[in-house]
């Protein structure tokens, strides 16, 4: 960890009690869900991390506590620094505060997470499905959602699968 990042890390640790680890040159904080908005605001205002580069989630099903990790990547363009923040979430359909007020581009990231993982973000202005059709059932990137592949036809099961295939009317 380089010097400026060390200082920021110590500062954030003191202010938010966020523990951090360093692995493969990346600094990763664990932040509780209720503090994440303050955490991001402090990063943006105080420590000049102007950009929310990425926001994603990981599903650790069948574990339920925590089931999800929300992973944020913050970038400081002026200081050329990066850091990661992870928010653990319990339960199948968790809810956490939205980051839209601090970083407006969290809007679509959070819509995608709602679409793909079913995580709700309170305070989000427009929480609709974004990638899947609006009437889709289920959240595809969850680990308990099947990949939904089609069986490969071989000579021994060709007929069985052929019958089940959907066909156009004309």
């Amino acid at each position: 960890m380089n010097k400026p990042l060390e200082k920021i890390a110590a500062d954030l640790n003191a202010e938010f009690g966020a523990t951090y680890t360093e692995d493969r040159g990346e600094v990763s904080f664990v932040v509780p869900a209720e503090r994440i908005v303050d955490f991001a605001a402090a990063l943006k205002k105080k420590h000049k991390f102007e950009m929310l580069a990425s926001q994603t989630a990981v599903d650790y099903w069948p574990a339920l506590a925590p089931r999800y990790h929300i992973v944020y990547q913050f970038t400081s363009v002026s200081k050329k620094l990066r850091l990661e923040a992870r928010v653990p979430l319990d339960g199948n359909d968790p809810e956490m505060p939205s980051l839209v007020d601090v970083f407006p581009n969290a809007n679509w990231f959070e819509r995608e997470l709602f679409d793909m993982f079913g995580i709700r973000f309170s305070g989000h202005p427009d929480l609709r499905r974004i990638l899947m059709p609006f009437d889709w059932e289920g959240h595809p990137l969850r680990k308990d959602y099947p990949l939904g592949y089609e069986e490969v036809q071989f000579s021994f099961n060709y007929e069985d699968i052929e019958v089940r295939k959907p066909r156009p009317k004309d």
Partner: peptide, 12 residues
């Protein structure tokens, strides 16, 4: 071969 893609446009 997954949930999102129509397996051949001849289905529609």
């Amino acid at each position: 071969n997954n949930y999102a893609i129509v397996q051949g446009v001849d289905e529609i």
